[in-house]
Each structure stands twice: as structure tokens, then as C-alpha cells.
Nucleic acid binder design. Sequence first.
DNA 1: GTCTATAAGAAGATAGAC
DNA 2: GTCTATCTTCTTATAGAC
Lengths: 206, 206
Amino acid sequence: MDTKKKILDVALTLFSEKGYGNVYVGQIAEGVGIKAPSLYKHYKCKQDIFNAILDEMRERYNQKAADLNLNGDDILMDSEVCKNASEDDLVKMGAGLFSFFLHDEYECKFRKMLTLEQFSDKELAGLFSNQYFDEPLKYQSGMLQFLIMQGKLKGDDADIMALQFFSPIYLLMTVCDRQPKREKECLQKLERHIRQFSRIYKGEDK
Amino acid sequence: MDTKKKILDVALTLFSEKGYGNVYVGQIAEGVGIKAPSLYKHYKCKQDIFNAILDEMRERYNQKAADLNLNGDDILMDSEVCKNASEDDLVKMGAGLFSFFLHDEYECKFRKMLTLEQFSDKELAGLFSNQYFDEPLKYQSGMLQFLIMQGKLKGDDADIMALQFFSPIYLLMTVCDRQPKREKECLQKLERHIRQFSRIYKGEDK
DNA sequence: GTCTATAAGAAGATAGAC
DNA sequence: GTCTATCTTCTTATAGAC
């Protein structure tokens, strides 16, 4: 097995749990199954391991972005889905996405690691905001804009609608990140949120 | 000046910037203006300083909660305010609260410190969720419930309405916490969010 | 590439003078 | 209560054998 890669895996796991400063090179080595000095044959220093994780992160992100742009109509695709979907389908979609981001090993660890390092320098702060604020909002705003143009939703400010759709989902996810036992409760709130959002912006104010 | 208290101040500042594990006793002492060993006349160990900060945090929180319960009709008071307030007044109130929590020295540092330590143990995770999820939602849900009963707002699920009102505000605050330069942009989004929320739940779907 | 041994230094904490 | 000196342990990182 690729030791160099495994070091990153173990390090990411530990960094996401304790934060960079509370993880020792020896712990990473132990997780990999080697001794600390062997680790320095793969990376020059501890900081290099962290940087390599960030590089991997960016690479995955660019890959995802490229995928989305290749089938550039993906936003439209999704919108068609939403357009033809019942409220139940929307809930299923939302819950599915929520569960994916909550449980996907990489998504989850990257998110926690960035959460712990977000104040340590400006680049990391920017990375965090990009991944968990600007990009999701941009994407969802585009979708909502399309649905509005199709006359499927009412509203004149898709950006704010996206903020109102996304923020509760994100907040519920952070609750689950720190208190996994509350997942069921959060999923229920997520469902109620999506149903209400869907009803409200269809103009069917109950 | 009270050295024991100043140690907590300096430590909180450092912990909120770097996280517990990345702050050294010597740095705290330096900030206070004494040498590290002197610090041990006030606190038994580094962890004790952290615990003392938490104790102070809880004390302040209980004090706030007690204040709210003493004039137990505070929720109702606030609701009266909202009830008679124009959309502009609501925006002003929201922006004021936002700015307070964003800039109040203690609120800001506590929030950042908890953000960095939320995964380090279950008690801190619970504390975080309480302060920045459950309690705000409980309070705002009560207010919204009252406004619904008064016929001022439409809706049948005050909890979810509170989630939809609060989440964007919280999320915008976290953006400012890590990227202070985005405050103006976030304040604008906050205003648009509150205006839209207000309009939507008044049933005046535009 | 992995190991043992070890250097070099940092960090938490204590002893004891003032 | 503050200081200097010091201890101990931990931590990163290197040297060099295998």
C-alpha cells in the first residue's frame, strides 16, 4: 500500500479530530504503522504533511468544479429535477445530500479540519468561506434563479433565497458534526425546513 | 490590577486565536506582563486556566439567562416591539444584534474559542450547541410563536421559522469571524434576508 | 524505506530566593 | 507574588545502520 498516501489519510483524520497543533508526528506514524523517523523519508516536515493535505483538497475541489462545468447544464439538469419533483422528492434529495456531506469520509474530515484551522491564516479562512459559503450559495442561487424564470417559484432575490435555503442545512450539519447522536433530530428539522421552504416560495402560504 | 483576572483575559484572547494546544504558558505570561512561573501562583496548571475561562463563561451565561427570566416577559416585550415595528425597524434590530455579537469582545472570543475546541470533548460540544443553536432557536421560536398567535405572522411551525430566521444570521456571523473585511457585504445580506423573511411570513408574497 | 539512537530545543511545571 | 534557575518530559527532526 502507498505509504505516502496513507500518511495523508491518517494525518487528516487526526488533524480533523484534534487540530494541527495537538497532533504529534509520532501519532501519525503510529497510525500508519511505522516509526516517526520513517515518516521523514516521505515528507520534509510536519507542516509539509499539512500542506500536502491542502493540495489534495484543492485538487479534489478543482476536479469537482471541472466535472460540474463539463456538463455545464448540470445546474439546469438539477433544476429540471426540482421542477418536476414533488415536495417529497425535494426532501429526499435534500436529505440525501445532507447525509452524503455528513458521512462522506473526506468531506467530513476536510470540513472539520478547516473548522479548526480557519483562524490560523487568511488563506485557510478564504478556503473555508469558499467551500462552505460562497460556492454552495452560488450554485443554489443559480438553480433557484432558473426555477424562478420557469415560473416554478416566486421571488425576486435568488441570492437571498439560496441563503435561506442553505443556511439551515449547513447549521444542522455542524450540529451533527459535533454531536452525531443528534442526527435523527436534525434530519427531521431538515425535512420540515425543506417542506416549508418549498411551500413558501411556491406562494402556497398555509 | 487583578492579575488573576488578567491572566484569563489574555488566555482567552490567545485561545480564541490559536486554540488551546497552540498557546504556550509563556505567551500568556508575556501578555500579562509577568514570567511564566509567576503564573503558577494563580493557577495550578494550564488546563486550570482553560477551565476557569469556561467557568466564567457559564457564569455569564447563567447571569444572562437569569436576567431574561427575571423580567420573564422579555420575550413578550420583544414581540411587542416586533409587532409594532416596521420592516425597517426589524432590520435595524437585526443589524444591531448582529453587530453586538460580532464585535462584543467576550462574545466574539468565547465563540471563536468554542469553535476551535468543539471537537475536543463532549461537554464542549454540548456547550457550543447550546449557546449557538438550541438557546437562540428556543428564544426566537418563542417570539415567533407569540407573533403568530397575535395574527401578526402566518405560519404553523415556529421552530422551523426560527431556524430559517436564525441560520442565515449565524452563518453570516461566522463569515465575518474569519473574514472581517466581508462585514459590509454580510450586513447587506443580513438586511435583505430580514426584509424577505418579514415579507414572506406576512403573506405578502411579492 | 524502515529502523534505532540521539540530537536539539521547546514547553509545562517546580524550587527556592527575594 | 514575582523572579531566576532548573527539572522533566515531550516533540520535531537528523544520522547512519540495515
